[in-house]
Nucleic acid binder design. Structure first.
Lengths: 214, 214
DNA sequence: GTCTATACACCGATAGAC
DNA sequence: GTCTATCGGTGTATAGAC
C-alpha cells in the first residue's frame, strides 16, 4: 500500500491551506507535516499548482453530483421552477461540503475562486469536460425559470453570481469578524449562505437592459 | 529632485502589475525596468505588499472624491433617489479610472480585491480613516433609497456588491474572451459595467429575509 | 536622506542515485 | 517510489558609501 503517500499529502495540504492560505503554505511545510519527502509532491502531482487543483477536484467530485440531482428534480417537475427555488436548491450541496470536512464550504469556494482567477482556463476546461452535463442542466433550469434571459446575459449573470459567492467566502472570516464587532451579529457559513441567496436570486432575475433611472 | 526614484518605482510597478499580475512581477523585474536599485523598494515602501498598497492608494485618492461628489448630489436633492440612480452614479467615477490610465478601471478593482482579501484589515482601516466621510455619505444615500434595509443587511449586501465587481474585473480578461468566442459578443470594460450595474442594483434591492419558495 | 552592494533564508522544481 | 543534493529565483535586511 504505497498510495498512502499521495493521500497523506492531499489531506495535509488541504488542512494547511485552510489554516494558512495557499502562498503561506510551502511544500516543505506540507511534506514535513505529512512526514513524506519533499520531492514526492512533484512526483505525485507535478507542481504545487496541480496539488491545489487536486484538492479542489475532490470537492468538485462530491459537489457536482448533488447539484446534478437537485437540477434533475427541477427538470422532472411538470411546472417551471421560479428562481428562488432554483437558488435555494444550492444551499444543501454547499452545506454538505461543510459536513464532509471542517470549513469545507469555505475551503471549496476558496479553491474555486483561486482556480478561476489564477489559471487561464484550466479549471474551466476540467469542469466543462467532467461536469458539462450538470452545468447544462443548471442552465436549462434557469432558462425555464427566466425564459426572457438571453444566453449571453445568462452567461454574465451566472459569473457575477460565482464572483459574489467566491469573494464573500474568500473574505468571510474577516467580514464575519467585522459584522460581529460592528453590529454584534454572529454569522456562520450557513446563515451567510441564506443571506447571500436572496441577493444572487434578485441579481440574476434583474430586469434586462441598462438601468432605468425613473 | 531625488523623489524621482519613488515615482519611477510606482509607475513601473503599476505597469508591470497590470501586464503580468502581482506574483509574476518580482521586485527585481520592477527595479531593473525602473533602472533603480533593488533595495530602494524596501527603503521607500518597506515591502512588496506595501508597494502594492501604494499603487492602490493613488487610485483611491482619485476615485473617492468623485464618488463623494456624486453622493453629495443625491444628498442635496430634495427627493430620495432610487437604487438605480445611486448605482448609476458609480459608472462615471469607475470609467474615469480608465481615462487617467490604460486599463485603469480593471487595475483599480484588481488592486482593491487583492487588498481586501490579502491583508487583514489594513486596507479597510486606510479607507475608513481617509474616506470614512464618503463611505458614510454612500450609506446614507442607500438608506434613503431603501429605508427598510437594516444596517447589518446593508453591510452584507454592499460587500456582496464589492465582491461581484472585484471578481468580475479580476477575471474580466478571461471572461470577455469566452463571451467573445462562445457568444460572439465583444465586451469592453464600459459595457461590462453597464451589464453588472442592474445585477448589483437588484441584489441590494432584493426583498429582505430568506428566499420564499412560492 | 538617499542609494548601493551584498548576504540571507526560503521557495518550487528537478536530476540522478537507490 | 523514494530520497538526497542542488539549482535558480524570491522577498527582505543591513552595512556602509555618497
Amino acid at each position: 500500500m504505497r498510495i498512502a503517500t499521495k493521500d497523506k499529502i492531499l489531506n495535509t495540504a488541504e488542512r494547511l491551506f485552510a489554516e494558512r492560505g495557499f502562498t503561506d503554505t510551502s511544500l516543505r511545510l506540507i511534506t514535513s507535516h505529512a512526514d513524506v519527502n519533499l520531492a514526492s509532491v512533484n512526483y505525485h502531482f507535478g507542481s504545487k499548482k496541480e496539488l491545489i487543483q487536486a484538492v479542489l477536484r475532490r470537492y468538485l467530485d462530491a459537489f457536482m453530483p448533488l447539484v446534478d440531482e437537485a437540477m434533475q428534480v427541477h427538470l422532472d417537475s411538470a411546472e417551471a421552477p421560479n428562481l428562488n427555488q432554483v437558488f435555494a436548491s444550492f444551499a444543501k450541496p454547499l452545506l454538505e461540503m461543510n459536513r464532509i470536512q471542517q470549513h469545507g464550504t469555505a475551503m471549496f469556494l476558496l479553491l474555486l475562486g483561486r482556480g478561476y482567477t489564477d489559471e487561464q482556463g484550466h479549471l474551466r476546461r476540467y469542469i466543462t469536460q467532467n461536469f458539462g452535463q450538470t452545468i447544462d442542466k443548471f442552465r436549462q433550469v434557469v432558462s425555464r425559470a427566466y425564459p426572457e434571459l438571453s444566453p449571453v446575459d445568462m452567461f454574465w449573470r451566472l459569473h457575477f453570481t460565482l464572483g459574489t459567492v467566491i469573494f464573500t467566502m474568500a473574505s468571510s472570516a474577516a467580514l464575519r469578524d467585522i459584522a460581529a464587532s460592528d453590529y454584534g451579529e454572529k454569522v456562520n457559513i450557513e446563515s451567510l449562505i441564506y443571506k447571500v441567496l436572496p441577493y444572487l436570486c434578485a441579481g440574476v432575475g434583474a430586469p434586462i437592459g441598462p438601468l432605468t433611472l425613473d
